[in-house]
Design a protein around this nucleic acid. Structure first.
Lengths: 201, 201
DNA sequence: GCATGTTCTTGACACGATGTCAAATACCTT
DNA sequence: AAGGTATTTGACATCGTGTCAAGAACATGC
């Protein structure tokens, strides 16, 4: 066995950064190869194809992101936790720097739309999987926090509504880039779920 | 002047259908040219570039779509109007047939993410423009209908919330394709805005 | 009716990107 | 030290975008 001459994980990070910045379409394997100091052929050997590379890079990000969300939802009052949660879905890690759009949402919408076409379907499941896990996370928090508000008692419906709003925010960010506006919508949604003064649990 | 040998508008329709089915990335000008019975070069001559063609095809669709929404919001009680509105954003014209994702949302998320890069920026404005117009439409309806519910009095905030949810639904459709679930979320959102029994206006 | 000009069409071309392959290479194992 | 195995490397095929010049078709003016 000849050992690899590059760091598998570092290439994934570099690749994901490129994909995130310029889109899957706008990123060529030559770009990534140059940035990573690796031959293009080696990327094909190690990852299979451009889409496969993107998927692996995405899964790496998804793991980190889910972890960050879990931590955001880990402490403080329910209202504080949800606020931190929305914050993270709005900033997507990179507070301050110009917005790049939610990778999950972008990935989902970039799919070919063809009827169950091989790798596209695999990608869809990856994106949908993260969303499912996040939904479950929020639902658990709401149930444990005994949220009142408009969805009184129905943590599942409340969580689904919250997730729907976060996905919508990801889209509106791309359309208008107006972060303060997004935060307003988020705050209002929290009010709906918790009741205007609830969430001390 | 030599006259064109093809129907400008029909080509736009064919192109949009292709783009919608297979994504911008998954559609080549050769595909469109074949389907439309036109030489590829003629497309470049008439529309400029692939992205320009997509944009023109999209604007054509956007006009039709906005009109349909206006009609949906034109009759019946406020609750009926909003129900019809959500229905149209969920089905996107093609009731029955397998979902293809909201063209506006897909287009928005497919953008390059680069900092204001020429045509991408123009595209963003096209997508954002439709969303703005739809938001205004909903807001007018809510204001005229004197919606109560959670957003009592604040038609702007209510409209923004509704739009956010519709964008979120477009994303969830791609993730799960579960139309009944989407309708539930929509119904719940209407309840939030109108109050559980309001909307007879 | 015919020449002229303007636009559309057509085919060839350049370029870049994806993906494949075989030969060369470097290391691990025995 | 030798052999095997996986990686690297460069060449190649293919496809898609976009450009260009030459040819073709029609409207207009004489």
């Amino acid at each position: 066995m000849r050992p690899r001459e590059f760091d598998h994980d570092e290439v994934l990070r570099i690749a994901f950064d490129q994909f995130w910045r310029n889109g899957v379409r706008g990123t060529s394997l030559s770009d990534i190869a140059r940035d990573a100091g690796v031959q293009r052929g080696s990327l094909y050997n190690a990852f299979g194809s451009k889409e496969a590379l993107f998927l692996q890079a995405y899964e790496r990000y998804a793991g980190d992101y889910l972890l960050a969300l879990q931590r955001a939802l880990g402490t403080g009052s329910l209202r504080k936790r949800l606020t931190a949660f929305f914050d993270l879905t709005i900033t997507n890690f990179r507070a301050g720097t110009p917005p790049r759009g939610c990778p999950t949402t972008r990935g989902l919408m970039e799919l070919g739309a063809a009827e169950g076409e091989g790798l596209d379907e695999e990608a869809r499941q990856a994106f949908a999987g993260l969303i499912s896990r996040i939904t479950a996370l929020v639902q658990d928090n709401l149930a444990a926090g005994a949220a009142r508000g408009e969805f009184d008692g129905n943590a599942a419906a409340a969580a689904l509504h919250i997730i729907t709003v976060t996905r919508g925010l990801a889209v509106l960010e791309r359309a208008f880039g107006d972060e303060p506006q997004l935060r307003k919508i988020a705050a209002h949604t929290i009010d709906l779920v918790l009741g205007r003064k609830g969430g001390s649990a």
